[in-house]
Design a protein around this nucleic acid. Structure first.
Lengths: 105, 105
DNA sequence: GTAATTAGGTTACATTTTGTTAGTAAGTAT
DNA sequence: ATACTTACTAACAAAATGTAACCTAATTAC
């Protein structure tokens, strides 16, 4: 791997979205705060990876994690931060492009 | 992995962009048709993977491959198809988001 | 009291995908 | 004949992913 003349911010941003599941998880959260199991059911992703991705996204500040300790079993809700929400147009753009251009085999 | 109620077109589109390097390769081609070695130099990607990704993108119809046999050594030029070019706003959107929100550690 | 259930994970391990390095084919230049 | 170039491909190690089983703590069913 060589040096690139790419903007490091852009490179990092692409690395985030260019990771499997990230886009779909963010898309799912666009419809509102959701619990772990709700996201797991909505996407064809396994619990292991969902957990891993949510941890990444939280670390990068795109997703917020809120634990409700009042009820049991514990409920954990994930929601988009301002930074995550700022990706909405991009994600909806991908959705539109897919509708327009992708053909199913 | 479970069933999802996701739109299959969107899922496939995300799968494309959610593959490592795809976004950066398309970004690079936005600046015009380019040769294999030019893309390789512009991005921190190895020849093996660049070759693999370009083959994928060609198969999906986002990229066109043109071989110039007149000169030697052979020149191969890659360019965006209409379908690939249609992703321009999305890719530039990711660039803008990265500039605005990514902080370098 | 014992067993089963639920939510949100984690561990262990097989399979795939990546990254790295070396090598190939066809045609030039020396 | 030897070296050099472009655009790859083969071989193999390292990392990421998919799959299944298990864990903890509280709650309910029997």
């Amino acid at each position: 791997m060589k040096q690139s003349s790419l903007c490091p911010k852009f490179e990092k941003g692409m690395q985030l979205l260019g990771k499997r599941w990230t886009g779909l998880i963010l898309y799912q959260l666009l419809s509102g705060p959701q619990r772990f199991c709700a996201i797991e059911e909505a996407l064809p992703i396994s619990g292991r990876l969902l957990s891993e991705r949510l941890k990444d996204l939280e670390k990068e500040g795109l997703v917020h994690r809120h634990v409700y300790t009042d009820s049991a079993p514990v409920r954990v809700e994930y929601s988009l931060t301002e930074k995550g929400l700022a990706l909405e147009p991009v994600i909806l753009g991908i959705e539109k492009w897919s509708q327009a251009w992708i053909e199913l085999t």
